[in-house]
């Protein structure tokens, strides 16, 4: 059974003449441990898709099921709880809380869940080491580099042991090298730790690490490509496809 199953998702913003159809009848599954990249030109609806998958927003019609839970029928409180337990988020601007240090930021989801502070910190420290942040654990976000901040964000996404990681342009604010490292890290998240990862990105080199690439255009899926991990030409192929779909 698929971990995520989106069926006939439609999202309309506004109404009447000004209505914008951001997503149009999109159906889409993600398997456990699968790494999926969603690509497409600006305004194609890829962020909207991510929001709907993560329960941050509600579809106009259609359903999203995560691990057997139909998100569209959940109350705000239940949805909040589901996000806390099943989904980890990674954002373009890292979105760390500026007044908390690295460990505290990484521990946030389980702290919010009521786990004892000592235990939460221990777990967060563990994950921070796994994602490659071994020092500066008690530093605040403004004392960390962009790559380091994003590692904290990845640790934060993983700390509650969610089945699904959603990332929105995770490398958009990083330099090339740091971007590569984060992309490799996400690959590791899927392979080594068995999470499903859905990444929305512009960056073909990130997408090249994925198992599958979904191309969106004007709110609809126009192509799905399964990549062979061993193929060294993946990145070039992604670029070609991007051009083909007008990005």
């Amino acid at each position: 059974m698929s971990l995520i199953s989106a069926v006939n998702l439609t999202k309309v913003y506004g109404s009447g003449d000004t209505a914008v159809r951001a997503l149009d009848n999109v159906s889409f599954d993600v398997e456990p441990g699968e790494f999926v990249a969603v690509m497409g030109p600006s305004g194609c609806g890829k962020s909207t898709l991510l929001h709907l998958l993560g329960g941050l927003d509600r579809p106009t019609s259609g359903t999203v099921t995560i691990d057997g839970n139909d998100l569209t029928n959940l109350s705000d409180a239940r949805l909040t709880e589901l996000r806390r337990h099943k989904i980890g988020f990674i954002f373009q601007f890292f979105n760390l809380i500026p007044v908390l240090n690295a460990v505290e930021n990484a521990a946030l989801p389980i702290t919010l869940d009521g786990v004892r502070q000592a235990e939460a910190k221990e777990k967060a420290t563990d994950w921070l080491r796994k994602v490659g942040l071994r020092e500066r654990l008690d530093h605040r976000p403004d004392q960390l580099s962009g790559g380091q901040q994003q590692r904290v964000a990845v640790a934060r996404a993983l700390v509650a042991d969610p089945a699904l990681i959603l990332a929105d342009e995770p490398t958009g604010n990083l330099d090339t090298r740091a971007g590569e490292e984060i992309a490799a890290l996400l690959r590791q998240v899927a392979n080594e730790w068995g999470r499903s990862v859905v990444v929305v990105t512009h960056d073909p080199r990130i997408a090249a690490h994925a198992d599958r690439i979904v191309f969106l255009k004007d709110g609809s899926i126009v192509d799905q490509t399964v990549l062979e991990p061993a193929n060294g030409r993946n990145a070039e192929m992604v670029v070609e496809k991007m051009h083909a779909f007008g990005d």
């Binding site: 909040t80 709880e81 988020f89 601007f93 946030l108 919010l112 509650a160």
Partner: peptide
């Protein structure tokens, strides 16, 4: 606002 939104995305309830 952004911090609050992030906390909500991570699963912080309104009460929190």
């Amino acid at each position: 606002r952004r911090d609050i939104g992030m906390l909500r995305a991570l699963g912080a309830s309104r009460r929190t």
